[in-house]
Computed example of a mutant assay.
Amino acid sequence: MNASIITIDGPTASGKGTVAQIVAEKLHFHYLDSGALYRLTALSVMRSGINPDDIDQIASIAGNLPCRFEKKRIFLGSEDVTEAIRTEEVGNTASVIAAFPKVRRALIDRQTGFKKAPGLVADGRDMGTIIFPEADLKIFLTASVDVRAERRYKQLLEKGIPANIDSLRNDLIERDRRDSCRKEAPLVPAEDAITLDTSSLDIDETVKRVLSLFARKSSKCS
């Protein structure tokens, strides 16, 4: 299959989702929000009332998610859960269950299935290291925890969701620790990834840098 792949990994609130989506639109590529799959699993687990330590049941839920992505909307069955999966509670639960190897393995085939011509932009935490190690361009986006907390704070307020910036900062620190220290697919840059610190960059500047890096890579391969 002739399909180019760009992976954009990074911690929570680094801007990877927004950047990946815009890059995909500009290149007319498909887009994979891998984090949404874990959030969908988390939401399903929270609603089911099953024991959060029952890894087998959680993996079963992950492997059989009745979800679909339509443009910028995300559906679980017939329900639009685009906003429901973005709460802090769901995000924290997703971070916990993402540490379970069985859950991660249950979602591998679903993620690799997004690879289609002419190309794919995939964002997450292990896109360049585990899911698409063959990617043409691997980006690792990062930013200081204070900048990321401020970004998340503004996002929540814009949605009318009350938030406390100190709590958000502490949550980010804990998520970073959990994501980076897990045994299965820890949050680390791929060896051949290019790290971009977005602390002082806005979305447009970051998108331009990613597109420029991809154009450079493509010209070398042509």
Score class of each variant (00 low, 15 high):
residue 162 P to C: 05
residue 49 G to I: 09
residue 116 K to I: 05
residue 34 S to I: 06
residue 40 L to S: 15
residue 163 A to D: 03
residue 54 D to M: 05
residue 212 S to E: 14
residue 116 K to V: 08
residue 175 R to Q: 04
residue 95 S to W: 07
residue 190 A to V: 00
residue 58 I to Y: 11
residue 147 V to M: 13
residue 128 G to S: 00
residue 2 N to S: 10
residue 220 K to P: 01
residue 167 S to I: 13
residue 196 L to S: 02
residue 57 Q to M: 12
residue 83 E to K: 15
residue 8 I to C: 11
residue 142 T to N: 10
residue 138 K to V: 00
residue 218 S to M: 14
residue 87 T to F: 03
residue 17 G to L: 06
residue 23 V to F: 11
residue 173 I to V: 14
residue 24 A to M: 10
residue 62 A to T: 10
residue 99 A to D: 02
residue 173 I to W: 10
residue 57 Q to D: 11
residue 204 D to P: 00
residue 220 K to A: 12
residue 66 P to G: 13
residue 37 L to I: 14
residue 108 I to L: 14
residue 78 S to N: 15
residue 53 D to V: 00
residue 121 V to I: 09
residue 23 V to D: 13
residue 147 V to I: 15
residue 213 L to M: 07
residue 19 V to D: 10
residue 26 K to V: 10
residue 61 I to V: 12
residue 146 D to C: 04
residue 211 L to C: 01
residue 67 C to I: 15
residue 132 F to K: 02
residue 118 P to Y: 08
residue 127 M to G: 01
residue 157 L to V: 12
residue 30 H to C: 08
residue 216 R to A: 09
residue 155 Q to Y: 05
residue 93 T to F: 13
residue 52 P to H: 10
residue 86 R to Y: 10
residue 174 E to T: 13
residue 109 D to A: 12
residue 188 V to N: 12
residue 125 R to N: 00
residue 58 I to V: 04
residue 140 F to L: 01
residue 188 V to R: 15
residue 1 M to A: 11
residue 104 R to C: 02
residue 208 K to R: 15
residue 104 R to S: 05
residue 151 R to N: 08
residue 140 F to M: 01
residue 222 S to I: 11
residue 128 G to D: 01
residue 143 A to H: 12
